[in-house]
């Protein structure tokens, strides 16, 4: 069909898209480049070098960074594991539990951690722990992280579950599988990509958190974001740029992984 113009195409939208990507990536790429700067000054370029990466692992602050990295990773693994388990159960209850009273209230409760601004969650959690006399430390950080990870794990899991036809479970039930076996051997294998991307999402969200952790970490405990924040308050140093680049690449690697898992998840269910 001959048209006066291509109705989908608008002049300038490609340019704005490129501008959008440029804005999103330019600061990150520049920090990446400067992390390889040999000079101790962050302004002048002194040639290519890996010295700041060596500094992150062996320099005077390396012990602090290692401890912070360990705290961050262990909290993220535990928080994401618990949150994914809770979210998987909740998703099955919500989406395979039929209609029930309080369904929208349950959904509101599950989404509450996303709707409440982070700083408010931080204040409320600090007040709560201080009132009940709970000692601030790794455990308080872990509990807070589990809470805000639940909705992030819930979303991909429930989205996956909604796309699965009920006939699989019904067939299992007709063959006298009990509910646990129906879940374990029929539903879970099909839900798996959703559960895995929910876990990765929760893991990244936990690793990313600064505001809530900063409020409730207590004295003497640092995660990577709070350690970086503390350092940056005294000025941006080259070793922080190297550390940031490492963390940035780690996040991108995880997201890429999650993307490919999600992509596999969109394919038809395995039939073999």
């Amino acid at each position: 069909m001959n048209r006066r113009f291509d109705i989908k195409h608008y002049q300038g939208f490609l340019a704005i898209t490129c501008l959008c990507l440029f804005i999103l990536y330019a600061p990150l790429i520049i920090v990446m480049i400067y992390s390889f700067n040999d000079s101790a000054s962050i302004t002048n370029w002194g040639g290519f070098s890996l010295r700041w990466y060596a500094d992150v692992f062996t320099g005077p602050e390396s012990e602090k960074f290692k401890l912070a990295a360990w705290n961050s990773l262990s909290i993220a693994v535990m928080a994401a594991t618990v949150a994914t388990t809770v979210a998987t159960a909740a998703a099955i209850g919500m989406i395979r539990g039929g209609q029930f009273r309080g369904k929208s209230a349950s959904f509101a409760l599950i989404s509450l951690p996303i709707m409440v601004p982070e700083i408010v969650t931080a204040v409320a959690t600090l007040i709560f722990f201080s009132t009940i006399g709970f000692k601030l430390g790794t455990l308080s950080i872990l509990v807070a992280h589990i809470v805000f990870c639940i909705p992030f794990a819930y979303l991909p899991i429930s989205a996956r579950l909604q796309g699965i036809e009920a006939s699989y479970e019904e067939a299992a039930q007709d063959l006298y599988a009990d509910r646990w076996r129906t879940f374990r051997y029929v539903l879970m294998p099909i839900m798996w990509p959703g559960i895995l991307s929910g876990f990765l999402l929760a893991f990244i969200i936990s690793l990313d958190d600064f505001i809530i952790t900063n409020f409730i970490k207590g004295a003497g405990i640092e995660t990577l974001p709070t350690a970086i924040f503390g350092s940056v308050k005294q000025g941006i140093k080259p070793n922080i740029m190297a550390l940031s680049t490492l963390l940035l690449l780690f996040s991108i690697a995880l997201v890429t992984l999650s993307y490919f898992i999600g992509k596999r998840g969109q394919e038809p269910y395995p039939t073999d």
Binding site: A90, I92, G98, L109, Y154, R179
Partner: peptide
Amino acid sequence: SATFSPVRGWLLLPS
């Protein structure tokens, strides 16, 4: 589907 409706309370309880 309502396969899990008898236990939905238990499934939702942790969250």
